[in-house]
Amino acid sequence: MTAVTAPAPPPHAASPLRWVLSDSWTVARRDLIHWTRNPTVIVAGLAFPIMFVLLYGYVFGSAMIVPGGGGYREFLMPGMFAQTMMFGAAATISAVAADKARGVTDRFRSMPMAQPAVVMGRSAADMVNSVLDLAVLVACGLLVGWSSNTGPLPTLTAFGLLLLLRFAMIWVGIYLGLVVSQEAAASTWALLFPLTMISNTFVDPSLMPAWLGTVAEWNPLSATVAATRELFGNSVPELVGTSWPAQNALLLAVVWPVLIVAIFLPLAVRRYHSAAR
């Protein structure tokens, strides 16, 4: 019978680091298996940024003239990378909201597992996904004529900044996923959309109405885009704005994500622990 064969509860009461790591890995692996066994999600997830590259690069790009004579697609690609990192939040939100709606979050919370592992596992799995997203986008970029014109160090730094932005968005995603209903989660990317558009991704903010340009300049996404453009050697001096955020893009590309994590990580953790419906 159950009472005889079932293992006794593990002897530890606290959750030492070892359990945090191994439980995080178990949770992350579950999320990754979901991903790999769900081909439509993979295809849709990858098709979206590729479609953007083609639409903006060729449809709009045909009408774009980049001052200084650089190619628009070269100008565009760092923006596409960063935008994809930003949109990643939508995937996090929907996965977290689905777990909550299906009672999986409650079950995790009622178990003697290491509690931080639930959110850590999620963020680890999403980071792995993001690296793959980024790899596909880079391949796509190389095909349409983009390349990094600098050395390996600045190039790697640029990818690091992109993943830092994605990491920050994971915590926004976990928090929102725990707050909103599963139905609402499906439409959150519609809210992300203007956030990614009002930036320097597609056009230089100085071409926008002044107030909108200011918003675009201060958009955390713009910082990452401008910084990575610089690091990839895709920017042209004419395009680097004279405003403070444009001049300090590299600094802001670190400060913004760190600030977002500092706000949303505690919020997400607290929400997870109280998750009262």
Binding site: P10, S22, D23, T26, R30, I33, M111, P112, M113
Partner: peptide, 13 residues
Amino acid sequence: RENLIMWGQLFHL
């Protein structure tokens, strides 16, 4: 089976 193994691992078996 995978479902149960996952829970087992989270129970630190």
